[in-house]
Amino acid sequence: MLCGGCGHREGLNIMEFSELIKLLGIVIVIVGFILKLEPILIILLGLTVTAIVSLMDPITLLSAIGSSFVSNRNMAIFILILLVTGTMERNGLKESAAKLIGKVKGASPGKIIGAYGIMRGFFAMFNVSFGGVAGFVRPVIMPMAIGAIEAKGDVPNEEHVEKIKGMSSGMENTAWFFWQVLFITGSGNLLVQQTLAGLGFEVELFALVRQVIPVSIFAMVWAIIYYNLVDRAQRKKHYGSGADAPKN
């Protein structure tokens, strides 16, 4: 809105109600998620309200929903992958993963959490999970970490155990978030690709993956270092200063 010599910023003050009201859809989405309404309902409301306030006719809205959903069908690729995921579980995927991490012997809780992070991240790159906190951290990682304390002849301290629980969950999330994006057709990558396409930028999936590699490595390395520092401080605090020295 350029008006003679007064510059385009002037547009802000005289921005019309019909323009501002277009934000109603966004407001609904934000408030809806804050209120923890059913996410699919929020999206449908956001779509409908945006269409109404921008005076779209119903057929145009339905066409927009239909054509964008159809062009986003790539993002449903996980359904094809599910065709084998369940059967892999049936054939002992989780048990084999537990056996694999069980090979980490004589390590401190911090190192066990680190090893889990590496394994979780590595498998996330291939879109493979084996149970998360409920299915793996609780039944496999926690007993290993507690066992590591007991193996040194110490009684696990409550504060330390609480820390280990928190850090294992933190490692679970960090590894999964920042390494699942290395799976080339992950839903995050596809969402970014589609969002950019909607704005007129065509990008390759592989280019997106390549861009995120330093972030994945930084997040993993930093999480391992940080959690090991915390674990070491905890062991020093609760089991005496010799906790980190090898017992041989």
Partner: peptide
């Protein structure tokens, strides 16, 4: 279906000119 529906929502926001207003 959330990611797919969100992508559709983004497309409709763009079409309606929400981005210009923000």
């Amino acid at each position: 279906m959330l990611p797919m529906l969100l992508a559709s929502l983004g497309a409709v926001f763009t079409a309606a000119g929400v981005g210009d207003v923000i």
